[in-house]
Amino acid sequence: MKSRVSLPSWLALSVTALILLVLPRLIGTDYYLHIAIISLVFVILATSLDILVGYSGLLSLCHTAFFAFGAYAAALLFLHFQMSLWLTMFAGGVFAASIAWLLGLLVLSVRGHRFIITTVIFAEIGRLIAYNWTDLTQGQIGLSGIRPPVFDLPGLPRIDFSSREAYYYLALVVTTTCVTIIWRITHSPIGWRMLALRENEALAEASGVDTRRIATTAFVSSAFFAGLAGAVYAHYTGFVSPDLFYFTYTTTMLIMVFLGGKGTIIGPVMGAVLFTILPEALRVTANYRLMTFSAILLVLVVFAPEGLVGLFARIRRRFAGQGSVQDA
């Protein structure tokens, strides 16, 4: 693949990397760092949701449930067993992935509306469990006191990640790793099978793609990263509650994927960053925020289904005058 990355792309990547590295110095205040960290978490969520929605063509409306399951797993493991983020990250991911696998046994045999509706219902079941299993989850009160990790290995400098700045770098490393892996999955033969599933399920089967299996792979891996993001979120905010299951979160993630451009990786990344910053910028109209968002989503879906990436491609085509097809 390396040969395909052009010089301008390398340049853009390097500049972005540089900016990301010095960002805490540039923005300084805790408030902006907070937004940066949250947007990094949402980058994982949006790109992992894109595995399903963009690459596999499965519109899942329970992504936030996997995020929440991961967050709860991390919170409980920390509170009961003092496990640090280094472990809960994976535990959260694996927990969410296992639930996705179980759910997949049930819902991946149906497609279309039934699949979509079942995923909505599943997220609600998750919320009810978190809300009602008070012995474990403390219900509506939620779980608090989850601490950021401390990096402490003999012979290496000790790093405490409780400062915003340190946690920013931690989240940056985790997010970059996740996005890279997601990129590699979607651009490997596994991702190509997802595309085959999305484009034409019967033909995919006839071509030798076990569609049930690849749908499960997509569902489970997508949930893994969402669960992992949940752990990163839980150790950052220190607090998880049943609200994490709310449909609004799933909608937010979907807006990010569609705003950026589904079926690409850079799209959801841009979408996540933009759509975390934008709401903060629009704070003046707090009451009308969700109204504005939903209007944005509506306009996007109806008039620009390819998102920003599609828009850029269209502009570039206009200037270059060549018919390049979007790399899926």
Partner: peptide, 22 residues
């Protein structure tokens, strides 16, 4: 039945990898 949204080349490329374990 073809993979409508993909380019011809890409569709056939994908087709060649479908049966291979990865």
């Amino acid at each position: 039945e073809v993979f409508k949204g993909l380019t011809v080349e890409r569709a056939v490329e994908i087709g060649t990898t479908c049966g291979r374990d990865f």
